[in-house]
Structures are given as C-alpha cells and as structure tokens.
Design a protein around this nucleic acid. Structure first.
Lengths: 342, 342
DNA sequence: GAAAGCCAGGAAACCGTTTTCCGCAAATTA
DNA sequence: TAATTTGCGGAAAACGGTTTCCTGGCTTTC
C-alpha cells in the first residue's frame, strides 16, 4: 500500500516468525531440517512483509550473480534485437537477468561497459553487433566467459555463434535452379560489407557447381530499396538478360520488384526474386510477397545464450559455430494456384 | 592473460600495497586522509591485480545499486526500442546499468520480472510498451519509483511520459492546410487501437477549427501497407474527393502512395500525403519520400530516464507528461524546386 | 617543557544472506 | 534407568566492501 516502504530484510522476517535469521533462511530455501510448521510460519511472515531476498547479498556468498551482460559492439539495430530477445528468453528460463549495453561503435564506450559488467560480477557476457564480420575480441583474459552472437570474434579460441550465410545463399540459388531459372543475377549491399561478399561468392560458387555462372557480375551498392530500383536499370543496360534476381536483402529485393513492375516485367513469371533476412515488413508488403532467406536470429541468440550457460558451468566450446539459414518460399518465386485453374 | 582468473578482492589489493583493507578502500575512493604516496601505492596495486570493485558488496552498504529495470509490457518492438535506447543512454551517463525484461504481453511474466527486479534491488523501474494506451499499473505500492514511457499508467498518481499524438496529428493537418489542401482524408490503424482513435479525432477537431471537416469518415483498418493500398480504393469509391491524405502510420502512407501512383495520381501534385512515425525505412523508400510526424521516441526515453532519476532522488512528478511531436517535411507534401525552374 | 592539535592509518562494526557447526530436548535403544 | 540417536533450531563465521571510531606519533603553542 504505502509507497516507498523500506525493503524487508530476512531479519525482519525472522523476528516476525519468532525464529533466528539462519532458520528463516533455511525455511525459505528449503535447506536444513525444520518442522513443516516452522517453514510455513516463516513463509507466511515473508509473504506478509513482501520480502524479496537481496540478490546482491546472496551472491556475495554464492559467488554467482545469475546475471549476464549483453554488449552490442555497434548500435543496437534491426539484427541485434532478435538476437538479444532470443538470448533474453533463453537466459530468463534459467532465472538469469540481462544487463543491456549499447556500444555505439565506440571502443571507449565498449571498454567502459566491460568494466562495469565485471564490476557487477556478471556470470558471463554476450557480444553482438549488426554485422557478421569477425571483429577483434572485446578484451583478453576476462575472468568470465564470453560468447559472440551474429558478429564473431577474430580469435578462434573465442566462442562465436553466427548464421550460415554461405549456406543461406546456396539455398536461395538452389531454389531458383529448382524452379527452372538459369540466368540469375545478383544485387547486393556494399562490397566492403562482409555479408555482401560472402553471399555473392557463395551464390556464384553454387551456380558454378551447376555448370552455370551469374548473369553479369554481382552488383554491389547499398542495403536499400532505392539501390534495388537503380540496380534494375543497370541489369537491363547490362544486356545479359535474366530470369531471376537473388538479392542481398529484402529491401533490395523489394526495390527490384517495384522497378520491374514499373517497366512491366512480371514477378515471378518473367523474373523470380529471392531476398535475404526474411523481414516481415518487407516480405509481406512487397508486391508480390517475397521469398527470402531467414537467418533465424532469435534461434541464434538462444543458442548463444545456451553456449554461454554451458561455458559458465565449465564447458567451453571454442570456435565459430555456424547455424543454418532456412528458405521461406512466397509468391515472388512461385505462381500461386488460382482456384478453378486445375 | 590467463583466462578465468579469480576476481581480485580489496583484501588482495590491501595486502599487495601493504595497508589495511580500510585504508585501501579510502585510497581507491578518495576518502579519509591519506598520504598521496599511499594512495598511489594502492592504486598501483589495484591496477596490477586488475581489481574491479564488487558492486553488489558495495551496494550492500550504500543501499543503492545504480541499476534500473526496464520492462516492456508487450513484446519489445519497433516503438519500444528507441525508447529503451534513449533511456539506456541517459541512464548510462549517470553510471547506471539497465536490466532488460521482455514482458511478452503475459501478466505472469510481467509479475515475475517485477519480483526479480525488486530482488535485485534496482533503484527504479521504467515500463514501456508498443501501444500508447493507458494500462493498469504493473503493481501497487512498490518500494521503488516507476516511470511509464510511451505507454502510460491508468493511475494518475503514476508518472507517465508519452508522445503528444494529439498535437502531432494537429501539426500534420495544419501543414496540409498551410499548403492549401482542404479536402483531407484520413486512413489509419484499427479502431480498437488508442493511437488510431486519438489521431483521428484530433485531426477532425483541428479541421473543425478551420471550418472544415474530414473528407469522408476516417478509414480504420490495419497498420500496414496492404491496408493503405486497399484504402485508396475505398477513398475513390467514397466519391467525396480528396487532395490530401493524412495517414496514421508511415506504412499506411506508403501503401497509399503506391496505390495512387498505380492509378496515375501524382503525389504531391494531386494528392499530398502525411505519415506518422517518421520511420526512415518507410519515409526514405517511399516514392516520393514521406512527410511524417516524428514522436521523438528516444527523447521520450531520455526524459523518462531523467524523471526516474529525479524520482530516485526524491522528486516525484506524478501525472501524464506529454512530449511534443515534430513534423518532418519531405517531398510527399512539397513539390521540389527543380533547378532552372525559377 | 608540557598540553593541545593534527595527521595517517588500523581495528572493528555493519550491510543482508548462507552455511557450518553445535547444543538442547525428545525419542529411541540397551 | 542410563546411554545413544535423532530432530530442530540457534550462534557465529564468512562473503567483499565502506565507514566510524580510535590510537600513536608528530608538530604546534603557550
């Protein structure tokens, strides 16, 4: 009722229940040997005072805080969020709380956050970012385990959980091949971006295995719809012809879709389209809805959290762990069955 | 160097520096009266052992944890993120760390999180959500201050920081009036959604003040592009005519833009368009780029954090605090000046 | 030269909890 | 009836800091 009451301590509870603090502690934690009647009395007292154990004081004794830190190396963005949420979910199930730290791409901030987290005696740290590229580890010789999620550490002794973008790109190409497309172009993000390079080279490689090659060189640009629209002009000017475009992101794919429609090319009949990210905002609003590669980001976060928990319990799994992507097929690669057509 | 070393304690530092723990504490915190030479010696010892004070132990004595909890009532989404980030930023500047909790719209989870946070002795709690509607407070009589951000509490004694959506809608209408539009339609989200109702009624009200009314009844639907596209058909069928559409979200606005272009109506020449949210992904990719109302979400988060800090220091400001929105003008309401046109 | 004041640093209490160890009383066994 | 076990619960140490109080030696002052 009354606001801003003081937190009750276990001493208050003990006094109210008429026992010693030690006994109260045992009663609340199910330890020691006590009469059931006593346990009930203590629990009732605790309830009455709305006693919540002071986690800080407890961890002083146990050495564990049941707390982990999550640091984003760069700004928290569209990719780190699902990872964070997946991790939060997996950790919450293990009764662990999460400290959120935004690195903002600033090494000073990053180091400050690491120090703070250590000071708070987190049991472990998850590092994430919005690019998959390997980055220098946040620190050497930390007294707690660290797992990198989505982003990866350049130190192979560190544990990193990353999407298998290579496999994802291959799946996209395989799908296009399976629906009979052979002249596949590729439009993607900036070349300095790791994801863009990996996806482009894997796509080319997979085509090579089928005795084909990309229809024209990969077009590197930006991760935006505007670039997707521009790229269509370049593809047409290139003159190599294409019956499918594998795009490095859903935004690009949507730009491509819009530009194609504007010039009267039908998707998917004339040109099939595959995006990357499976971002519902784009895949759903695009005309037609986009087939896309899903990196399963919250699964990634969940896995990272599980590996962190394992590491906290002593089982460290060093290395770069790639998690599979999955292809979600929608109308941009399949002509819908119109009822009555059969 | 070596991984997984134990955390150094202040006793270790004191031993290495050849002083008592009390003295070491004073040296590191700039308390008491010590010779400069001693301070230096202790600091050096701390550095050598990479000592980080155990925040839990410290707060045991001070009663403060310099920690706050952030709970989302519903899932963490596009609206809560900027709020969270703004708050994280403002709190980080005050050396406070943030516990992130995802409520997932589940009251049980919510209560669990509240309990956990209290157990961790956070100094305060920020509650947020993805809807602005007033919600029942997370709990009564909590021993720590609570501030609601974006979402608001139905208890007027609680402190809520919300966007002035009403004002935002009025600004949108004023802008359309200022560029000479008089037949303004409104397409927005589901009617059961608080934001949709408020924005619609404020727009109508502002038009009323100018002696006008909405061109046709507000069209309630979904917060999606698909709905925006459908709504254009309804507007045309309505037959009331319109030279501007104020949309309840950028996604809707973009859908409207696409549908208008598809039938050969020019934006902004024939129809001016204003969105809501100022979501760069939509405003930038739309053709033409969208004029939109910005709710300044991270400013909201920052303000909420500041009010929480104030409350922690004893200055409680109950009530619903509305923060202004701002209109960002782009090409969907202004014909760009073509060079050489003058 | 003695009393007073000052400075640096140590000893110990305290914060809230857990856990180990121990003692007492009742119940069981010899 | 005396001795032993068992069950229950209390006392106290420990966790890692901070802070208050105190002491011992040195300088100042009359």
């Amino acid at each position: 009722m009354g606001k801003l009451e003081r937190h009750a301590t276990i001493a208050d509870v003990a006094a109210l229940a008429g026992v010693s603090v030690g006994t109260a502690s045992k009663a609340l934690n199910g330890r020691g040997s006590l009469r059931e009647e006593t346990r009930v009395r203590v629990r009732e007292a605790a309830r009455q005072l709305s006693f919540e154990v002071n986690a800080g004081a407890r961890s002083l004794h146990s050495g564990r805080t049941y707390t982990v830190g999550m640091i984003t190396m760069d700004t928290i963005g569209r990719f780190s969020i699902p990872v964070l949420m997946g991790a939060e979910d997996a950790l919450g199930a293990g009764q662990m709380s999460v400290f959120l730290c935004d690195g903002r791409d600033d090494p000073i901030r990053e180091q400050y956050h690491v120090k703070t987290l250590l000071s708070r005696r987190v049991d472990g740290i998850i590092v994430t970012g919005r690019r998959t590229e390997a980055r220098a580890p946040i620190a050497a010789g930390l007294p707690v385990p660290v797992v990198y999620a989505y982003i990866s550490s350049s130190d192979p002794q560190d544990c990193s959980v990353v999407p298998d973008e290579e496999g994802g790109a291959r799946k996209a190409v395989e799908h296009l091949l399976a629906i009979g497309r052979t002249r596949i172009a590729h439009v993607t993000g900036p070349e300095h971006h790791h994801s863009a390079r990996v996806r482009a080279s894997s796509a080319a490689e997979r085509l090579g295995e089928a005795g084909l090659e990309l229809s024209g060189p990969p077009l590197f640009g930006a991760w935006s719809e505007v670039w997707g629209r521009q790229a269509v002009g370049m593809l047409l000017a290139g003159g190599t012809g294409f019956d499918a475009v594998f795009c490095g992101s859903d935004q690009i794919a949507r730009g491509v879709a819009d530009a194609l429609r504007a010039i009267g090319r039908r998707v998917p009949e004339d040109v099939a389209l595959v995006g990357f990210d499976n971002w519902d905002v784009m895949t759903g609003a695009s005309q037609p809805p986009l087939t896309s590669v899903d990196m399963n980001l919250d699964g990634l976060g969940r896995t990272a959290a599980e590996m962190l928990l394992a590491a906290i319990n002593g089982t460290h799994s060093p290395g770069r762990h790639a998690r599979p992507c999955r292809l979600v097929v929608r109308e941009s690669t399949t002509v819908p069955l119109v009822p009555g057509t059969l």
